[in-house]
Design a binder for these strands. Sequence first.
DNA 1: AATATTATTTAGACAAATCTAAATAAAATA
DNA 2: TATTTTATTTAGATTTGTCTAAATAATATT
Lengths: 219, 219
Amino acid sequence: MNLTVAEENYIKSIYKLQDGNTVVSTNAIAYELATKPASVTDMAKKLKEKKLIDYEKYQGISLTPEGRKIALQIVRRHRLWECFLVDKLSFSWNEVHEIAEELEHVRSEKLITRLSNFLGNPTTDPHGDPIPDAMGRISKSQPLVSLDKATARRLEVAGVSDQSSSLLEFLNAKGIRLGTQLDIIERYEFDNSVEVKIRNQPAFTLSEQVSKNIMVKSL
Amino acid sequence: MNLTVAEENYIKSIYKLQDGNTVVSTNAIAYELATKPASVTDMAKKLKEKKLIDYEKYQGISLTPEGRKIALQIVRRHRLWECFLVDKLSFSWNEVHEIAEELEHVRSEKLITRLSNFLGNPTTDPHGDPIPDAMGRISKSQPLVSLDKATARRLEVAGVSDQSSSLLEFLNAKGIRLGTQLDIIERYEFDNSVEVKIRNQPAFTLSEQVSKNIMVKSL
DNA sequence: AATATTATTTAGACAAATCTAAATAAAATA
DNA sequence: TATTTTATTTAGATTTGTCTAAATAATATT
Ligand SMILES: [Mn+2]
Ligand SMILES: [Mn+2]
Ligand SMILES: [Mn+2]
Ligand SMILES: [Mn+2]
């Protein structure tokens, strides 16, 4: 199965959007890929032809088992490259997504096997997302709680639900990254903001907008 | 200047073929890129439009200074990735070309700067070819001699002029790589073959075909 | 149920990169 | 120089991925 870069990007988006849902809508894919619904319909026909998706017009789109297998390979490549960029080239987590978006399309079994090995076969990427193994097995990311709903006092940052560069940049500036331990100092009902503290640093306040997108686990 | 992968591949081929020559022919480029002369003519018009090559019909093709600058960037990326694959992922030199052929098109200044740094800013790639620096400066590869014409008795392998996977694989199997030291045992006029010896190994014979493509310097 | 809104598909077009076959120019040879 | 061969270009198609505008289907609202 030899796929173009465009086809790979569609497969990956469908995988991402499907998560739980039975089918994905034409519009959702168009929005995700910053393209037009008409283009999605065109591509849907091609991917159906290749038996990578199930698709009947007006009925939404879902990956076939084969499509899912390919999606997991692409996700694996994407996340391994993100690890490489952060761990070996000292990029910060907000800079790696766009670059990995290109690197993920370099197809070579051997390259990915060796890259994974070189990185110590990591199981999560710099954003806390699980990395599928060579067989496409992916650990169910334990259901995390968002910071605005967490109950414990001491928490560890385990992921972000919004991966926009603007959020990641903000967190970066505040010194919040994966594995950072936070203490909840105070919650303000008024605007649902929350005051938090990182060891050896003055406390600061996070808006609801932000705390909603920080996924944490208690220690 | 935003170039497509195809445009980058053309620019790189023209750079490679120009080397010394004033202009490059349509056919030479077609052969190098395994495409058809008609396609080269089409692309020549586009690249001229973008002011990356000088081209008048029937007069051959040459890079403009701007085109040359871009070629050097692509060559830099290609060779740095080759270093990465060999030095960090333990690929052998005959396996890296195809993969680097894809990696070279991932465009990110920062990525390449950091990759170079991570590798210790190497100045030659695994095939002995010089790596242009960030400014596009490239060290004139000292004019090497091919093994079949070398005069000294003890030689060091400094490059290969044919980079086909078949030659590299052969050399690999014989234990010949960049920096390998060879002693000339005997030259046979009959078929221009040459018997060589690597330290701690039995001597063996190389055909003229092979020795022509091994570039060496004396020690 | 009729109407309005939203989602999706179709029709027709375009740019990029390629091809084959035919036409033309340049170079080599007799 | 005339002829043959080789190199290059043009003309016309094809594939991939995209778009806009118009048509149609599904859903929501009165
Ligand atoms: Mn991508
Ligand atoms: Mn990620
Ligand atoms: Mn390439
Ligand atoms: Mn090389």
